[in-house]
Amino acid sequence: MENFEVSQRAKLPTRFGNFLIQSFRELRKENNCECPLDHLVIFTDSLSEVPLVRVHSECLTGDVFGSQKCDCGGELALAMQKISQNAQEGQGGMLIYLRQEGRGIGLFNKVNAYALQDEGYDTVEANEALGFKSDNRDYSIVGDILNYYKIKKIRLLTNNPGKIQAMSQYVEVIRDSIIVPSNCYNQKYLNTKKSKLGHLL
């Protein structure tokens, strides 16, 4: 039995352009309890043999509320713009939106990590002080999603070498950078991503 369910396909007109949307329900079991996660896939009507792909982990504070503590909201918007432009050039692309808030620690713990950052901890130190790894994400569902769409090779929008390595388990990866402007609130965060997590910034 597969560890996911797939929704129907629907149209999604956005300010970036017209897309299709589909949801993948990941059927997880944790502590003898079923904990489904509903991920989203937003994609263009046609996909080339090597589509432009962004694997974006949910960041409610950045994506929805415009938090300037991170670069997530900016990266999401830029990825949508790039995928839409790629579609206009006849290539197409896909955004996989993973419901793994706070690099996999959840929204409640992310807010607690924010509080520690207010006291001077960096993003890695805050996660570790709460008993988590610096990055708690699991990308196995991405392999299922790419296989579902019969994708074998991607141009991956990322600055994260760990994500490149993770995706390379499932498909051939060519990296495309995704750089958004920094600000006075996220400069330390970005420096930490570069120095401690190896991000290509």
Rank of each mutant, 00 (worst) to 15 (best):
residue 184 C to R: 14
residue 45 D to R: 15
residue 127 N to T: 01
residue 75 E to H: 14
residue 33 C to M: 13
residue 129 A to F: 08
residue 3 N to E: 13
residue 20 L to R: 15
residue 171 V to S: 04
residue 110 K to H: 09
residue 86 N to R: 08
residue 57 S to K: 03
residue 199 H to F: 05
residue 62 G to P: 11
residue 96 I to W: 07
residue 156 L to R: 04
residue 179 I to G: 13
residue 116 L to F: 08
residue 201 L to H: 11
residue 121 Y to Q: 07
residue 142 V to H: 07
residue 195 S to D: 09
residue 94 M to E: 00
residue 20 L to F: 15
residue 36 P to S: 11
residue 60 L to F: 14
residue 131 G to P: 07
residue 21 I to F: 14
residue 158 T to V: 11
residue 66 G to W: 06
residue 8 Q to C: 15
residue 45 D to K: 14
residue 162 G to C: 10
residue 155 R to K: 15
residue 8 Q to I: 14
residue 59 C to L: 00
residue 66 G to V: 00
residue 113 A to Y: 08
residue 36 P to K: 09
residue 116 L to R: 04
residue 99 R to V: 04
residue 12 L to T: 03
residue 36 P to Y: 09
residue 132 F to M: 06
residue 42 I to W: 01
residue 107 L to W: 10
residue 28 R to H: 14
residue 92 G to W: 00
residue 67 S to T: 03
residue 198 G to Q: 08
residue 27 L to K: 13
residue 105 I to A: 04
residue 28 R to C: 12
residue 40 L to C: 05
residue 131 G to Y: 12
residue 151 I to T: 06
residue 27 L to T: 06
residue 145 I to H: 05
residue 136 N to Q: 15
residue 185 Y to I: 05
residue 87 A to Q: 03
residue 96 I to H: 06
residue 60 L to M: 04
residue 164 I to N: 08
residue 91 Q to E: 11
residue 102 G to W: 08
residue 155 R to E: 14
residue 74 G to H: 08
residue 69 K to L: 10
residue 122 D to H: 03
residue 139 Y to S: 01
residue 75 E to A: 06
residue 151 I to W: 10
residue 113 A to N: 08
residue 5 E to I: 14
residue 130 L to R: 01
residue 152 K to Y: 04
residue 118 D to W: 07
residue 117 Q to K: 10
residue 75 E to L: 09
residue 168 S to G: 03
residue 67 S to W: 05
residue 88 Q to P: 08
residue 127 N to G: 05
residue 162 G to E: 12
residue 78 L to K: 11
residue 166 A to H: 08
residue 82 K to N: 03
residue 63 D to L: 02
residue 37 L to N: 10
residue 152 K to H: 05
residue 17 G to M: 07
residue 192 T to Q: 01
residue 154 I to A: 10
residue 66 G to Q: 03
residue 10 A to E: 11
residue 54 R to I: 01
residue 60 L to K: 12
residue 98 L to G: 07
residue 130 L to H: 04
residue 25 R to S: 11
residue 90 G to P: 00
residue 175 R to G: 02
residue 143 G to D: 09
residue 134 S to H: 15
residue 191 N to H: 15
residue 124 V to T: 03
residue 97 Y to V: 00
residue 147 N to I: 09
residue 163 K to N: 02
residue 108 F to S: 14
residue 158 T to G: 11
residue 130 L to A: 07
residue 7 S to I: 06
residue 131 G to C: 12
residue 134 S to R: 15
residue 59 C to H: 01
residue 99 R to N: 09
residue 75 E to G: 14
residue 20 L to D: 13
residue 127 N to F: 04
residue 77 A to M: 13
residue 58 E to A: 10
residue 113 A to V: 07
residue 142 V to E: 03
residue 14 T to N: 12
residue 7 S to D: 13
residue 83 I to F: 00
residue 198 G to S: 04
residue 10 A to T: 10
residue 197 L to P: 07
residue 56 H to T: 00
residue 72 C to M: 02
residue 96 I to F: 03
residue 174 I to S: 14
residue 85 Q to V: 10
residue 193 K to E: 02
residue 67 S to N: 12
residue 100 Q to R: 00
residue 181 P to W: 02
residue 135 D to R: 08
residue 146 L to F: 02
residue 62 G to A: 07
residue 83 I to C: 01
residue 20 L to I: 12
residue 106 G to A: 04
residue 137 R to P: 10
residue 172 E to W: 09
residue 175 R to N: 03
residue 89 E to P: 11
